[in-house]
Nucleic acid binder design. Structure first.
Lengths: 187, 187
DNA sequence: GGGGTAATATTGTGCGCGTCATAGAACATG
DNA sequence: CATGTTCTATGACGCGCACAATATTACCCC
């Protein structure tokens, strides 16, 4: 049920998703929501955001952990999001971004999104640091990667094309490899 | 009234903004909407997106046109969005991004957002080309800039901090200046 | 001065969310 | 082993709101 909610959030946004939609998608009955999530939609939303964040982290950790190469992680991210966009015909995006944008009246959702983004950024930054990049630069590049990928997903959805994601990935790869080379040259 | 709509869209999103909100914010009377915008909310939304796109373009054109320096344009963008985030206490974002994310059931809004993004991207790419950067690379960097700035705004809102925007701007400046230097060295 | 058009105020309808009353099952007890 | 009780889950109802439409009023032109 949480999975259905996260999926629908990534397509229609949080405010655009009603209980009925979630229930229809998950097959769960109407009254179950209030019993499982006594906090109502707020609690369901929070749990869905948390789940989506951890789910993506898990996939990224698996990709980064295999070979501790941030460039490989970038490729993994690119393939993941390209797949999401393709199979949904550019209807789905990043549920965390939706939470960050729509959660004006739902402050907790936005704060949670901020935490998730922080976790993701830390993941990439640590990988870069292990590659020899200095701390501040690693954080800076990690933020650039996160921001540009999230932005690229938005552009892809708006223009119904994978090109923004491809271009951004290519440029990011240049930035990261050059930073890694510089650090190795210094060593 | 369109201005109020765009402003509210950037804060609460499209689906989170009701007619009453727009009217309360603009001071216009209740029944006016349906007469001025016979298409209802759809038409108001479309006009607001168009207006926001052209408004931002106008500001950017003014900044880029003064000195045809894409790096200066980047600085202008950074200051603009930093100001938007600061004065709204991280409540406001980019209305076009909201339109792109929320417009699943409102296909026209998403297509309009795609067009606006295309216009912006073309603006930056042309400026880079005039700086000597080859066409494909210019388009690629322009897409990176647009995507990372939009993503940075999302990150800033979620984390209630200007740091993502600062980091992204710094990294983008490195990318752009190095590309411009390379092209001048080749010439 | 009368008719027509445009702008506004009021009303209606559909829907999303939260709550309540009922049914079923599991466990404990006689 | 049967029955009663309690807890959990579920489907049905009501309230509130957002949007669209219609009726009324004011203004302008003829």
């Amino acid at each position: 049920m949480i999975e259905s909610a996260a999926s629908l959030f990534s397509e229609r946004g949080i405010q655009g998703t009603s209980f009925a939609d979630v229930l229809a998608h998950s097959g769960a009955p109407r009254g179950s929501v209030y019993h499982h999530f006594s906090g109502g939609k707020t609690e369901l939303t929070e749990d869905a955001i948390r789940w989506a964040g951890e789910f993506t982290i898990a996939g990224a950790v698996a990709a980064v952990g295999r070979s501790d190469d941030p460039v490989a992680a970038l490729g993994s991210f690119r393939r993941h999001w390209a797949n999401v966009l393709r199979v949904s015909d550019f209807e789905a995006g990043c549920p965390i971004a939706s939470a960050a944008l729509e959660g004006s009246h739902e402050p907790t959702a936005r704060d949670l999104a901020g935490e998730v983004f922080g976790d993701w950024q830390k993941l990439v930054a640590d990988s870069l640091r292990r590659g020899g990049v200095a701390g501040p630069r690693a954080r800076s590049i990690a933020t650039l990667m996160l921001a540009s990928l999230e932005g690229a997903i938005v552009l892809c959805r708006a223009q119904r094309s994978l090109r923004p994601l491809q271009r951004v990935s290519a440029e990011l790869e240049v930035v990261m490899t050059s930073a890694l080379e510089q650090s190795q040259r210094a060593a």
